[in-house]
């Protein structure tokens, strides 16, 4: 393992992961305090003032527990330490708009978001990479060029805008697909039931299509550009002069060398992909983290907003980490090259 992934490199990447998570957590802590407010306390106080009686008592209780959780009676650095401890304990406080701990809400929604994001990114990446590579290889093919250009043109439009149009045509006008939810209401989650899976796919189809159409073109574009560069390089010419078979030339020489920049592109795009999936979910009312985020914003449920954002960043951080670790396997030069 250490021979494949050099230790120094591994530690370096781990440091980045920790830094990313720390920055994300600290932002959550610092931003409201920079703005000179405590949105959660404000909201709770507002609630307390607006509703009295039995429920008012409940809100007063909530305020107390919030003070304790956030360590508001301690000095600032104490609050910060308390805050980081809470994070490490996976304790993100309480969502008052949903009357449940933030962790419960987010952990229910996260798999749906990651499922949607993971599968569409995988398909889109594979499809776009394949199409882009092929179009660089067979530049004379008309049909191929037209379809790749079309994909590239679509990639210009943000996926949630494509989603808007698809929702209107496919779901509302043609009524081919459901317009909201992750499965038909009333159904129970049953991982062993094929019909349940089909129902899930049916519900995810249009959001997935929007993401697919909105992103595949950018992979194709990147791949085509890099493939054209690699195909023009000296080592491809020399391999051809060696008389290697065409298939080997494509796979072991061209594709193998393009995969590293292409994977880097993937890693660099994860952030915008998460933004896209969040917005697409909202457009379709697909109940992943994005939709939770939207309702949290509507309800000014700041704890929940923070929780959603933190978990999305955590997922991205981990995905980036995994991709980073795969670089040395894709390119032996990586551990020697100075990181620039």
């Amino acid at each position: 393992m250490t021979r494949l992934i050099p230790l120094r490199y591994f530690l370096h990447r781990t440091l980045y992961l920790v830094a990313v998570l720390w920055v994300a957590a600290t932002l959550n802590f610092v931003l409201p305090r920079l703005a000179g407010r405590d949105p959660i306390l404000e909201r709770l106080t507002e609630l307390e003032a607006s509703i009295g009686g039995h429920r008012g008592l409940w809100v007063a209780e909530a305020i107390d527990s919030y003070r304790e959780w956030a360590g508001l009676n301690q000095p600032l650095w104490g609050q910060y330490v308390q805050y980081l401890q809470n994070m490490l304990n996976m304790d993100f406080g309480y969502s008052f708009s949903r009357n449940r701990p933030v962790w419960d809400v987010v952990s229910y929604a996260l798999p749906w978001t990651m499922g949607l994001l993971g599968t569409t990114t995988f398909i889109s990446f594979a499809l776009g990479t394949f199409a882009g590579g092929l179009s660089a290889w067979r530049r004379q093919d008309r049909l191929l060029n037209v379809s790749v250009s079309l994909l590239m043109a679509l990639a210009v439009i943000p996926p949630f805008i494509i989603g808007l149009v698809l929702a209107d045509t496919l779901a509302f006008r043609l009524k081919l697909f459901p317009i909201a939810g992750m499965f038909t209401p009333g159904r129970f989650v049953d991982l062993g039931d094929i019909e349940w899976w089909l129902d899930v796919l049916h519900h995810a189809a249009v959001p997935a299509l929007a993401l697919l159409l909105g992103t595949a073109g950018s992979w194709a574009m990147g791949m085509r550009g890099m493939m054209v560069t690699v195909l023009g390089s000296d080592f491809i010419a020399f391999a051809e002069a060696k008389g290697v078979k065409r298939l080997r030339l494509i796979l072991s020489y061209a594709i193998r060398n393009v995969m590293l920049p292409q994977t880097t592109l993937l890693a660099m795009s994860l952030g915008s992909l998460v933004s896209s999936v969040t917005l697409v979910e909202i457009m379709f009312g697909y109940p992943g983290v994005g939709s939770i985020l939207e309702s949290a914003i509507r309800a000014f449920d700041y704890n929940l907003i923070q929780g959603c954002v933190f978990f999305l960043i955590l997922s991205i951080g981990l995905a980036t980490f995994v991709l980073d670790l795969s670089y040395p396997l894709l390119d032996p030069r990586i551990s020697y090259r100075k990181q620039t």
């Binding site: 390089s233 080592f235 391999a239 002069a241 072991s252 193998r256 894709l330």
Partner: peptide, 16 residues
């Protein structure tokens, strides 16, 4: 017939 390439610096596949 075989060829010895001009740009030996870049004539080998860097990942093999």
């Amino acid at each position: 017939l075989a060829m010895i390439p001009q740009g030996a610096m870049n004539s080998l596949n860097p990942v093999m």
